[in-house]
């Protein structure tokens, strides 16, 4: 059932600009870093002389976090918006499908789109590294994968929250506002205490254990997803 629901979700995204958005996010991050490193090549290469790739990855990651926050907000709003637009909820929910699966489907689609976007960051960053002549000898694949996928996992509560809000509300103004506030909060997150979920995607915590942030994110993400699902299963459809 889940697979069929997912295939329908992707069918509905045809000819929407979602895929362009998925591409644009990581492209924008790397392009800005290309400008950054291009303009300050001598300065930055001197600063990161003993770990050129590490320096690039740190800079990419810095821009990636706000992009993740805003990206998931827009993706959640777009995937829910397809069904708000002509109120196709009533058609879908009068079909013999489990309501919980429909909600899980919206969540999964949003997460997968964001995952694609995050994944694209890997080849784009490598390409930029090559162009900046950082060498092929020690490809920082493990480092890069961690930089990309750990925050993706730690940001789950926000994916779940935005999917919930966007699905529950016909008017997307509030969900978008909440998402933008989340992005801004995320930018100051390094100063937050460890228990604040906005801090988790940065993987910074007092114990210096990125996996703690990932674990917390996955747990709260699951909880928020289930809460949203419960509400969706109960509510009357207009």
């Amino acid at each position: 059932m889940m697979l069929r629901i997912m295939s329908v979700e992707f069918l509905k995204l045809r000819r929407k600009l979602v895929w362009l958005l998925v591409l644009l996010g990581p492209l924008g991050v790397v392009a800005l870093q290309a400008v950054n490193f291009g303009l300050r090549y001598d300065y930055l290469t001197k600063q990161y002389a003993d770990d050129l790739w590490g320096g690039l990855i740190d800079n990419v990651s810095m821009l990636m976090l706000p992009t993740l926050f805003i990206g998931l907000t827009i993706l959640a709003s777009m995937t829910a918006g397809i069904d708000h637009q002509m109120n196709t909820w009533k058609q879908t929910l009068a079909l013999p499908v489990n309501r919980a699966s429909i909600f899980a489907g919206k969540f999964a689609v949003t997460a997968i789109l964001l995952l694609c976007s995050s994944t694209l960051l890997v080849p784009f960053t490598l390409l930029l590294g090559f162009l900046l002549d950082f060498g092929f000898e020690e490809l920082p694949l493990a480092d890069l994968a961690m930089t990309v996928y750990y925050p993706f996992l730690a940001i789950m509560p926000f994916i779940a929250l935005q999917v919930w809000l966007s699905v529950a509300m016909h008017n997307q103004a509030l969900p978008l506002t909440v998402g933008i506030i989340g992005m801004i909060a995320g930018m100051f997150a390094s100063q937050f205490p460890d228990w604040m979920p906005w801090k988790w995607p940065s993987l910074i915590n007092d114990r210096d254990m990125p996996l703690y942030s990932v674990g917390a994110g996955l747990t709260l993400g699951l909880i928020v997803m289930l809460l949203g699902m419960c509400q969706f299963v109960r509510k009357d459809v207009r």
């Binding site: 509905k12 045809r14 000819r15 929407k16 637009q85 002509m86 109120n87 009533k90 058609q91 009068a94």
Partner: peptide, 13 residues
Amino acid sequence: GSLVEYPSYYGHL
């Protein structure tokens, strides 16, 4: 099979 109020459809499809 049902049709409620006004037809639901995905306009871009």
